[in-house]
Amino acid sequence: MPIKFQGNIFTTLVLYLKSDELELINYALKKKINESPSFFKNAPIIINLSFLKKELNWNKLKKIILKNNFIILGISECFNLSLKKKIIDSGFPVFSNTKSLIKDKKIKFKKKFYKSIFYKNTIHSGQTIYAKKSDLIITNNVNEGAEIIADGNIHVYGKLSGRALAGANGDNTRKIFSTKLFSELLSISGEYCLIDSIPKNILNKSAQIYLKNGVVQIKKL
């Protein structure tokens, strides 16, 4: 067969719009980009519209997003039928939120005991490591631009500069541990924060990352 369809895991930023004021959105995007230019440049994103109660000007919003050098993969949680049609007619897909579907189905994760996968070498920029149904233990550095993903917990006994995503299968009880935290993105069960959210007194220090009431927590070890 010349083609093959297969599921995979990718890191995708979700842009939640909490205002329909386009100038305010543009200003907020520029401010966020200035905080971490290399991270946001040409970043693929999904735009979440669940907070908006009225229709906005989709064409103008699209121009603002693209002008700020983001790549729009699609839209999620668009409840306005007129706006949804305009988005689809402009060539962009509208997705349902996976986490909402999980909540609707009332799926609960029982306490799990994960096996462990070990890496002793440096994880370099451009590399992606995925520990399926396992904890991931790295006894070296994770460089900027690298990505480590685990359905279980993540342990990095070195400098964590890349992206780390634990609980990738939706288990929000998983944690991330690092002896030297400087990560560009941290995620637990789809909830994430960027490097500017790491307290200055914890940067380059030992830390643990976990979820509490749906919010990513970063604490000293």
Rank of each mutant, 00 (worst) to 15 (best):
K159P: 00
S36T: 02
G126C: 02
L66P: 01
V216G: 05
G190R: 05
I138W: 03
N121I: 03
T173R: 11
L61P: 02
I88C: 07
L181H: 15
G91W: 05
N8W: 02
K110Y: 09
I87Q: 09
N34T: 03
I218S: 08
H124D: 04
D20M: 02
N69H: 12
I218N: 09
I45G: 02
I188P: 03
I47N: 05
D151E: 09
S96D: 08
P199F: 09
K219E: 15
N68Q: 13
I137Q: 08
K120T: 10
G214K: 04
I65C: 06
Y210L: 12
G158Q: 04
H124F: 11
F109W: 12
E144A: 11
L17P: 07
S96Y: 07
P93T: 04
G170E: 06
L136P: 08
N204H: 14
S82I: 15
T128W: 01
N80M: 13
L181T: 14
D20W: 01
S125F: 03
G152P: 01
L13W: 03
A207D: 01
L194A: 05
N213S: 15
G74T: 11
K4C: 09
N213C: 05
L160A: 00
I46M: 02
G7L: 11
F10Q: 13
I138N: 03
L221R: 14
D104T: 15
F5K: 13
K60S: 10
I87V: 14
Q208L: 09
I138F: 08
Y210N: 08
I87M: 13
I198F: 06
E144Q: 10
G167T: 07
N213V: 05
K219R: 13
L165C: 07
K219W: 01
S38G: 00
L136C: 07
V142S: 07
Q127C: 01
L29C: 05
K105V: 11
I176E: 09
K63D: 13
K175P: 02
Y130R: 03
N68T: 10
K159N: 10
N121Q: 14
K159D: 04
K108E: 14
C78Y: 12
K60L: 08
K159F: 01
N213G: 02
L73T: 09
I138P: 02
G167Y: 09
D151M: 05
L49I: 12
N172E: 12
I33L: 02
I107D: 07
I138S: 03
W58S: 01
L15F: 09
T139V: 10
K54P: 00
K159M: 10
T128G: 00
A164F: 05
L49Q: 10
S125W: 05
I149N: 00
S189N: 07
I218G: 13
Y210G: 00
V142K: 07
L165M: 12
